[in-house]
Write a protein that binds this DNA or RNA. Structure first.
Lengths: 217, 217
DNA sequence: CTCGATAAGTACCGTACGGTACGGTTCGTG
DNA sequence: CACGAACCGTACCGTACGGTACTTATCGAG
């Protein structure tokens, strides 16, 4: 499953700078503030160039998503033999990273944008966002819990389902609340810790439960 | 269950009909389709009346949320002694109801609307939606798991946190995916069942685990 | 029947946005 | 130097929307 195929985004430095300014506008003022004239002004370029580079407004939005996704590279940890504390730690780091990503200004702004357009464009932006924005971090988590199972530390039938469980335990309704403009707790560490503990209690093997001290919790 | 407090929306029948038409427009065509002229045309009323009744466009949007919330009354089950199968069943019914509500056309459209406005109006609509739309169903679940604890079937320290866990297990990222335009699985029953099983495994007492057959799962 | 209130229907206004066209400027290349 | 491509800045166009004003019609009260 070669990822790329159609999409070879790779914009020029100048275009990247423009996209960066566009993201800034979007974060600051929401979709309403993201006008072609505004982007051109903020980026010191002409509207004509915008249309030459990105086709139309939708093309600009898509490019913004691709650009942002290209910046959020996540490292893939592997190799090293997994121990129970190691797995727990890795899961907690993942959980905190996930929460940090989801609560980021740009992420929230782009998600709001895509949600707003979902009824209109046949969810083109939404698909783009789910594809580009989540694939990386999803794969990282999937690799981690698969490794946990191979090491005999986790037990589950369906890895995808186990991951969805982990995701739900970590995020719950936090993402939607933030999208709606709420600013809930900011103690992501505690939240991550609790979520991982619950996940291990659900999918940890006897060995894991014993070593993590979850047998009598 | 009097909804109490500040808000006594209570629009006239005529206004309710207008709001209903407005919701229909919103569901069908998204926010872009929800123009004052369009609502007036669809509801056979004049724009002037719209402005007299609802003040301005934002007032209309708020009224739409209040109107929809007033229609989604949820019954509160109580009394009857809780057994393990009873609790499990009630939880599954709740989970399915929650999924049905979140995946409803009108709910999704209103959530998209509020998300789209979140950057603009200081999340006024978002707060309205979280307040009106969720309070009812939240209370129902809270009452249920509190009753479960009182009956010695559930164990947890913080009821709110336990509820968030349940919510995350049920919904995971489904809500956001749907808001983004994705149409994932529709087998809510299986999803509800799995979520409840996980929740009981996390927060069930020994008695519950034994009776629900979760000790060796 | 008359009066006043309510509201439908329509015409109108200002504004703002997406998209296009054009003149002027920079800069790389032969 | 000369030429052309890329591009900035701006002016422009058509359209669509939010909001207001005005005319007409319905209807209940006296």
């Amino acid at each position: 499953m070669q990822a790329d195929s159609a999409t070879a985004p790779e914009f020029s430095p100048r275009q990247n700078a423009v996209l960066s300014q566009a993201l800034r506008l979007l974060v600051d003022g929401g979709e309403k503030a993201l006008t072609t004239a505004g982007v051109a002004r903020a980026a010191n370029c002409s509207k004509e160039s915008l249309y030459k580079w990105f086709g139309d407004r939708d093309g600009l939005l898509s490019a913004m998503i691709a650009f942002q996704a290209s910046k959020v590279r996540t490292f893939e940890r592997d190799g090293e033999r997994l121990t129970v504390p190691g797995l727990q730690d890795h899961l907690e780091v993942f959980a905190k990273d996930l929460l940090d990503v989801l609560s980021g200004d740009v992420s929230l702004a782009l998600n709001r944008l895509a949600v707003g357009q979902a009824s209109r464009d046949g969810s083109k932006l939404g698909r783009l966002l789910m594809e580009h924005g989540r694939r990386q971090i999803d794969r990282r988590a999937r690799a981690l819990i698969d490794a946990g199972r191979r090491a005999g530390l986790l037990a589950f039938d369906d890895g995808e389902e186990a991951y969805r469980t982990l995701y739900g335990l970590i995020v719950s309704d936090l993402h939607v609340r933030m999208l709606l403009g709420d600013h809930p707790e900011t103690d992501f560490s505690q939240r991550a810790e609790r979520a991982v503990r619950a996940f291990l209690k659900l999918h940890g093997t006897a060995k894991t439960l014993a070593e993590a001290g979850l047998t009598a919790a």
